[in-house]
Design a protein around this nucleic acid. Structure first.
Length: 717
DNA sequence: GAGCACTGC
């Protein structure tokens, strides 16, 4: 579990600072401490039995609660039992990057090896594995990419899919793929398979720098005997049966967790206003319960900020000596320095009340929590394939989520969880959250599957099959983008090229076209920026300097060109500093520039990483990265040719009509075109919140659509 | 004139 990874991260920080004065003593005690810790884990007592089960079963479901040690220990058991002989690896996938990194570090420490030797991790932009690596921790998305290059995943003897209950798209697709690969690998030698044939085809196309040591290993696997692949699916208890059934009645074993008991308390009556109920509960705990911090789960930034304000207000009505309560917000968009405040211990005598989004449910673990307040709601994204529109709504949490939330109270001491609804309401909740694959745009997934030689998407063996409407919509989109032929096969070369790029298909298409329009440099930057969270800070930012800064970058042509100039100016600044030789810390220089220009440095750094990675990819495809200089007309025409599916026309009343779906939409107020209201635009995103908004726009000439996308707009006016 | 939970290649 990521939560476990987090806890272990803390202990690994402690351990990484041995007292330099007494290195041997410190090393000795650290070693002893690790050995003791390992022995004390619940999973330690069942090592032999687990290994026996793995030997007996090709697929094993391991149900392990928080604190069982399954993520760190099982791979080591497998190594010791000989599953890494002859250069084979045990691969362990995680849904989140941070978990892959922290667990790998911890296990390397336990094994007393340098990271990157026997134990390593590989995540996007950061690969620490070497040809010595036998226990490889990685994100599930990365293993999916690896399967494109080595369709049998032939370097692995065992693959462990951890956190399978998470049911991310990557996890779901990976499970289906692994099931197929396992069958292929157990077939007799030399038998030709769908996946096997494709291996040759794919590998001649491109290389992927994210997948090291592939050369000579996966090649020529045809005709050579493939060793069988063992699969281990690890999950929290609730949906073990789903996995077992999916894998043909696979054996499931249960490993004890180690958690302190948590008292669950429900309200007697339903609460009409859960914000107010949360406030009342916060103060009730503060005034009546033993010391210990409080964690409140809220749905978003707005709620968190208003609760923070209300707590401060109500504190003023308490007697002086009762005011030692410190509200601390935490959510993903919060700058990391401010996020760190949630981890700092409260001042002496104070009680912290952490106001958090879902980020505190799985991604981070905050120490010292003894009380959890759970209103039972979550903000969830959904997708309507018919309208091609995403929406974000507040919906009831699932039982699995509320369980995860209450567990946050029992990590260090026995705790209490206050659920702000009656017990009979709990019974009505869904068991688990709807798998992501049933509520997202499938075009990228389908492109990946096609590239793996899986053509029958509707008949593909998903755990939960996406709706046929969603599949049809994605196929149509891929066809319109030129990735698929009329009969649904991967188009050569465009479809193959698009499947290689770790981007949304529409962005990949834009890069291919940009290569022809001689504006690949501009499109690389644009696509990198569009991929990350907005590079401008909080849209509620009212400070004059912030507005001036944004205006400074703004282009009358729209948001894409605006982003381009932000990226370019930051780059020029960096180059100047480099030439001037003022320091060599790129990160520091960039942060300074971002601060002065009110740009989100985390987002910009992320965009620069993506730019670099995608640039390498397109160069390997033989594209020449050229720039159109100041000819922004050509660049906008290229945008129109790429985003023709996402065009909108202004109507008489000043609203817009999305041409593909016919939906009436509005320009999002964060767009630089919000006031300008040009006649025709292409947009990047259509999302419903309080209204149906289009975001990230560029002004185009409507005639370009029929000119540049005649296959789509021929019959349109 | 609004506002975006969280991941991932």
């Amino acid at each position: 579990m990521p939560s476990m990874a987090q806890r272990e991260f803390r202990s690994s920080v402690q351990n990484s600072k041995p007292n330099p004065k007494f290195p041997t003593v410190s090393h000795f005690s650290m070693r002893q401490k690790i050995a003791e810790h390992r022995r004390s884990l619940p999973i330690a007592t069942v090592e032999k039995r687990l290994i026996e089960e793995v030997r007996k079963n090709d697929i094993l479901i391991v149900v392990g609660e928080t604190g069982s040690g399954k993520t760190t220990q099982l791979p080591q058991f497998l190594y010791n039992a000989g599953f890494c002989r002859e250069g084979k690896m045990v691969g362990i996938t995680q849904p989140r990057r941070i978990a892959a990194v922290t667990v790998a570090k911890r296990v390397a420490e336990e094994c007393e090896v340098e990271l990157g030797q026997k134990v390593g991790y590989s995540i996007r932009f950061d690969d620490t594995t070497s040809n010595l690596t036998r226990l490889k921790y990685m994100t599930d998305g990365l293993l999916l990419r690896e399967a494109l290059l080595d369709p049998h995943l032939s370097r692995y003897s065992v693959i462990i899919v951890d956190e399978a209950h998470d049911r991310s798209v990557h996890t779901d697709v990976l499970l289906a793929l692994l099931k197929k690969i396992q069958r292929t690998r157990s077939k007799p030698t030399g038998e030709k398979t769908e996946i096997g044939n494709l291996a040759l085809e794919v590998q001649t196309n491109t290389r992927d720098e994210n997948v090291p040591q592939q050369n000579g290993v996966s090649r020529g696997c045809q005709g050579r005997k493939l060793s069988p692949l063992k699969l281990i699916i690890m999950s929290a208890s609730l949906d073990a049966r789903v996995f077992s059934e999916y894998f043909g009645g696979a054996k499931a074993v249960h490993v004890q967790g180690r958690q302190f008991p948590v008292d669950i308390l429900y309200t007697v009556h339903p609460e009409s206003d859960y914000i107010d109920a949360a406030l009342v509960t916060i103060f009730q705990i503060h005034l009546e319960e033993k010391p210990g911090d409080i964690l409140v789960f809220l749905t978003g930034q707005d709620e968190i900020e208003s609760v923070e304000r209300l707590v401060q207000e109500r504190l003023q009505h308490l007697p002086e000596d009762k005011r030692k309560l410190l509200p601390v917000p935490i959510f993903s968009a919060l700058p990391s320095e401010q996020q760190m405040k949630a981890f700092a211990p409260a001042p002496t005598g104070f009680r912290k009340v952490i106001l958090a989004t879902n980020i505190a449910e799985t991604s981070i673990t905050i120490p010292g929590i003894r009380y959890v307040i759970d209103p039972g709601f979550v903000k969830a994204r959904s997708y309507d394939p018919r309208k091609g529109m995403e929406s974000l709504d507040v919906v009831p949490a699932s039982k699995a989520q509320t369980l995860q939330r209450s567990g946050r109270a029992g990590r260090e001491v026995p705790g209490k969880c206050f659920r702000l609804y009656p017990e009979r309401e709990f019974e009505k909740l869904e068991d688990s959250t709807k798998p992501e694959i049933k509520r997202c745009n499938l075009s990228n997934i389908i492109l990946q599957l096609k590239a793996l030689g899986i053509d029958d998407i509707v008949g593909f063996d998903f755990i939960d099959r996406p709706s046929s409407g969603a599949i049809v919509k994605a196929l149509a989109e891929l066809h319109a983008l030129g990735a698929l032929t009329d009969d649904g096969k991967l188009e050569d070369p465009a479809g193959y090229q698009m499947s290689r790029l770790p981007l949304e298909p529409i962005y990949s298409k834009a890069l291919i076209l940009a290569n022809q329009y001689n504006c690949l440099e501009e499109m690389l930057i644009t696509v990198a920026v569009l991929t990350v969270e907005s590079i401008f800070y909080d849209p509620r930012e009212k400070r004059e300097e912030a507005r001036t800064a944004k205006n400074h970058f703004a282009s009358v042509e729209g948001d894409h060109l605006t982003y381009l100039s932000v990226y370019r100016e930051s780059d020029e600044f960096l180059e100047k500093k480099k030439v001037a030789g003022s320091g060599n810390n790129i990160d520091k220089i960039m942060k300074k520039w971002c601060k002065e220009n009110f740009v989100n440095s985390r987002s910009l750094k992320h965009a620069r990483d993506i730019y670099r990675q995608i640039r390498e990819h397109v160069e390997q495809m033989g594209f020449n990265v050229s720039s159109c200089g100041n000819d922004m007309l050509e660049f906008r025409r290229c945008l129109a040719a790429s985003f023709f599916l996402k065009a909108a026309l202004r109507q008489l009343d000043g609203t817009y009509r999305a041409m593909e779906s016919g939906e009436v939409v509005h320009i999002h107020p964060t767009s630089v075109l919000f006031r300008a209201k040009p006649e025709c635009v292409i947009f990047d995103e259509l999302m419903q919140t309080s209204k149906k908004y289009i975001k990230n726009l560029t002004r185009i000439d409507p005639l370009w659509l029929t000119e540049l996308a005649p296959h789509h707009y021929k019959t349109a006016e």
